[in-house]
Nucleic acid binder design. Structure first.
Lengths: 195, 195
DNA sequence: GCGCTGACAGATTTCAATATCTGTCAGCGC
DNA sequence: GCGCTGACAGATATTGAAATCTGTCAGCGC
């Protein structure tokens, strides 16, 4: 198991994800992580000052895996309305896929995210900033008409919570969900559009 | 305590709410309710087949107290856009007030509502039907332009979840909340408006 | 007859003893 | 010196026995 590999924070995080996957959030202990790494649990505390900070780091990795592909979409050229819709649908798809493919892991992520609320807030700010960028672009293109892109971005984020906030995950399997997504997106894009 | 009053379902519900308020959801037992009513707990089971059904009935009462004033607004005459905004703000205010004034009771209500999901679904359907009514009116007035009022009503409901779904209650105290409400309402009303 | 009582069985919760975990640190070995 | 170990104290979780609760029902009293 050990492979004589140096013990880096990165390696600890990878193994921690494995342990979380195998044991579940409630039962996964620092001792389990250390055992999987074939070191004493004291060594883990050399890289992370507490169990909470280790969990936070795991949460951060997960959230970065969500925002990275979105940032890519936000950076592409093209008409803002199309891009915004693509961006939002990508966000919803990413979340929906996660909960469908591995609901147990999603529950773990959800609890973890609740704890690491600083990290989650930063993630939200990051996503809203991306939306703001797209909206600003849309205003420049003459496609959108909004007073304040920052406020509008927050509003878009708030108005789509049903489809990206984990609290509503139990509705995502519903067959009417895709219709509801369409309806909300239509409404919001009409609301942003210059006339 | 007893007052020799006949034991009706209504009286049981009132006292049950008292007991919930005093003991909290987790600790309130059917025996507590019976004791407060000065009867044996067997008598309570004459009116409600189970503890779950008693809780469900309490939840139903609570939800009816939310929807009744809204139904009144929906029934009033006047321009649909104004009415819709008033209706939504009334919904948000009702919820926000509850959570601010008595957060503990709100937590009780929240857990109860999770259990009584049939009752909650019916409540949601009721609210969406009210919105649908307002939208249909707005279309008739020429103020709104929507393909399908039912779908649009559901979309309005989905898009305002941040401000009425209890899962987001912890954000309602935030000072930016009122700005965010304004932003979302502006966006949605623009989205519905005929041009 | 009709509604209430109170004892009962099985399910659930509580509580305290026990075990495990978190976070620290002196000291070992490379 | 530097990083790791493993023993330790205090905090947290687990466990199983005892207490309480849910839901039923035969029988009492109006």
């Amino acid at each position: 198991m050990n492979e004589a590999v140096v013990l880096t924070s990165e390696r600890i995080l990878e193994v921690t994800e494995d342990v979380l996957r195998r044991y579940g959030l409630a039962k996964a202990t620092v001792v389990d992580v250390a055992r999987a790494l074939d070191v004493s649990h004291g060594s883990v505390y050399r890289h992370f000052p507490s169990k909470a900070s280790l969990r936070e780091a795991v949460a951060k990795r997960w959230l970065e895996r969500v925002s990275a592909p979105l940032a890519q979409i936000a950076a592409e050229p093209g008409p803002a309305p199309v891009k915004l819709e693509r961006w939002l649908r990508e966000l919803f798809d990413a979340k929906h896929k996660r909960v469908c493919e591995d609901p147990e892991m999603f529950a773990t992520y959800l609890t973890l995210a609740r704890e690491a609320c600083t990290v989650v807030k930063a993630h939200k700010q990051d996503l809203i900033a991306q939306v703001e960028g797209i909206i600003t672009e849309g205003v420049a293109q003459g496609a959108f008409d909004v007073a304040d892109p920052k406020t509008a971005a927050a509003a878009i984020f708030d108005a789509t919570r049903s489809f990206h906030h984990p609290a509503h995950a139990d509705e995502w399997a519903d067959c009417t969900c895709s219709t509801r997504v369409d309806a909300v997106l239509t409404l919001l894009l009409r609301g942003l559009a210059a006339r």
